[in-house]
Design a protein around this nucleic acid. Structure first.
Length: 570
DNA sequence: GCCGTTTTCGGCCCGACTGTTTTCAGTCG
């Protein structure tokens, strides 16, 4: 069973307990456990089998529920709770404005057990007729049902950044903005983003808010005030802008960056030291004095902590490490010296070899790899061995004119269903660098996929496994495989695992990158660019690797070219 | 239900907003 399914099972228990008005701390324990499970790259049951105390937030009780979920797909507790509230009632909680208390009441008092029925009672007035529910609440819920049906899903990271930077550019251009930063999950470079958040300082906040609500991409204004405005952008995405006093900027930015779990742990850490954190600063409980913070650096320093990079604010072990000043020095975007996964118009790319070489050189790269598809990928105009040789000659010819950048003649070679490579060994041997990637037969069992990946990893010609899970964010969930076994094989073989920087992939994902690094695997961070302007996607890959805890020395394409050559000739 | 370089029992993050209320519960981030 996938960790995501286990987490969903625990969340369902939490939702049901909440409707029965169980102990709030017990409910929170289930939610915390669900989040903990979700952040693991390895199946939670495997970790617990090795070490019963191996996952913070999971004790004896929840551990048993996890075993039940693994064995039967459900838990006795959930079955019992469903006597009171059927499964469909839990779905009501996904409508914004519907909490557990209200969901329980509409079911008990109105017999509503689905979103469709909720919509009906919101329209016919029965919802507004409940005590402590008025016409405004009912209308709000109805509006949220409509919005929920239109765009329930979170947006991919790339979309979030393109939307929020466009708004930021407009606000900055209008003048009067002194500071402006993206907050929330976009700032943490989480792979999907719900709402967009901006935190800023302005000389005349009201004027800036006016600019915001009148932007052409603003579809609807939810609220407008001097400190906070909320708008719906075209496409239905919500954006909140908060403008604060300069002396509160650090505190507020920290608060609205999250993650929620990071902030909860940080507040617990503070409470244990006689301090109380809120978005307005840090209060010394004994004296009642609240310190305000202009920068996040000062905020973390005041807690006796090393500054915690936004990518690590996941509510894992970062506070404990920061207290010991033991956080890793993460790789920086400027550390990247090359891009080892690039396509041209020889296969399915849009640019010529020369255009890609110039673009990489203009980014200041010292090396790059041209890695067009192998022949088996007919849809991507994959190269035959003959065309591959012709392309290599063309690459050498272009490269001779750009001595400032080393151009590796490579290929992204399809890994067939049985783990064999799409080119014979003698063809692979001619290449400077080989990326093995899966593009077909993605519905294999975990056992098949594991064996397939390991066979490719152990092929001595294969240097990198490209987008290892094949997931597409918002599309397919990616292949299941045994992370431990695959990463152990990669560490033994010296085969790198790619963090594909395309925001539709981000694959390895953050937690998998962490697991790979713990297994001793080195990463590459590549854009897989099919056009010149996609070289700039590198930042998303670096941020994802940072979320996995990657340092410069963990990433091949942050190493000088001599080291790359040494690795490739291993 | 979980957890402990103050605790194995007694705690568990914090505040804003909204709507429905004569003092606050529920929801959200």
């Amino acid at each position: 069973m996938r960790n995501g399914q286990i987490a969903a099972g625990l969340r369902e228990i939490a939702d049901l307990l909440e409707m029965t008005e169980d102990n709030v701390f017990r409910i929170r324990a289930y939610r915390r456990a669900a989040e903990a499970v979700e952040s693991l790259a390895e199946p939670v049951a495997a970790i617990l089998a090795r070490d019963p105390k191996g996952v913070a937030g999971i004790g004896a009780g929840i551990s048993e529920h996890i075993q039940e979920l693994e064995a039967t797909g459900t838990t006795q507790l959930a079955v019992d709770l469903h006597q009171q509230f059927p499964e469909s009632v839990v779905a009501l909680l996904r409508v914004p404005g519907m909490g557990p208390k209200l969901a329980a009441r509409v079911y008990r008092e109105l017999g509503v057990s689905s979103v469709a029925e909720l919509e009906a009672v919101a329209i016919d007035g029965r919802l507004a007729g409940l005590s402590r529910v008025g016409t405004k609440s009912a209308a709000n819920i109805l509006r949220n049902i409509t919005a929920f049906k239109e765009h329930g899903a979170r947006m991919p990271l790339g979309e979030a950044w393109s939307r929020v930077t466009s708004v930021m550019a407009a606000l900055n251009a209008a003048g009067g903005v002194r500071r402006l930063t993206v907050a929330g999950s976009a700032r943490r470079y989480q792979d999907t983003v719900g709402d967009l958040d901006l935190v800023g300082v302005a000389e005349e906040p009201l004027a800036v808010m006016d600019v915001l609500v009148n932007l052409p991409e603003v579809e609807r204004v939810l609220g407008q005030g001097p400190t906070k405005s909320s708008v719906i952008l075209s496409g239905g995405r919500q954006l909140d802008l908060r403008l604060v006093e300069p002396e509160d900027y650090g505190s507020l930015l920290q608060h609205f960056t999250g993650s929620k779990q990071h902030n909860i742990l940080l507040r617990e850490y503070a409470v244990a030291r006689g301090l109380k954190i809120s978005e307005y600063g840090i209060e010394d409980v004994a004296t009642g004095v609240t310190r305000r913070f202009e920068t996040e650096e000062a905020f973390y320093t005041a807690l006796g902590l090393q500054f915690i990079p936004v990518e690590l604010r996941q509510g894992r072990d970062e506070i404990r490490l920061a207290a010991k000043h033991g956080l890793p020095t993460l790789i920086e975007p400027d550390d990247i010296l090359g891009d080892l996964h690039l396509h041209t118009d020889w296969s399915d790319g849009g640019a010529t070899i020369e255009q890609m070489v110039r673009a990489a050189r203009d980014r200041g790269y010292r090396y790059m790899a041209i890695s067009d598809h192998s022949g088996g990928l007919g849809v991507a105009h994959g190269l035959t061995p003959e065309r591959l040789r012709a392309q290599r000659a063309a690459i050498r010819e272009v490269a001779a004119r750009y001595p400032e950048i080393r151009v590796f003649a490579a290929s992204e070679v399809d890994i067939r269903a049985d783990g064999a490579m799409d080119f014979p060994d003698e063809v692979l041997a001619e290449l400077d660098l080989v990326i093995g990637s899966i593009h077909s037969a993605m519905s294999q069992s975990s056992e098949e996929a594991t064996a397939r990946l390991i066979r490719a990893i152990e092929n001595p010609h294969v240097d990198i496994i490209g987008h290892p899970s094949t997931r597409l964010i918002g599309g397919r969930s990616g292949m299941e495989f045994d992370r431990q076994a695959v990463f152990a094989a990669a560490a033994r073989a010296g085969t790198a695992m790619e963090v594909n920087a395309n925001p539709a992939r981000l694959d390895l994902r953050d937690a998998d990158a962490r697991l790979a690094l713990e297994a001793g695997v080195k990463l590459t961070i590549d854009t897989d660019a099919h056009a010149v302007d996609q070289l700039s996607l590198m930042e998303f890959g670096v941020r994802t690797a940072r979320r996995g805890g990657a340092r410069r020395q963990d990433v091949w394409n942050a190493a000088p070219v001599e080291e790359i050559v040494g690795w490739l000739s291993r």
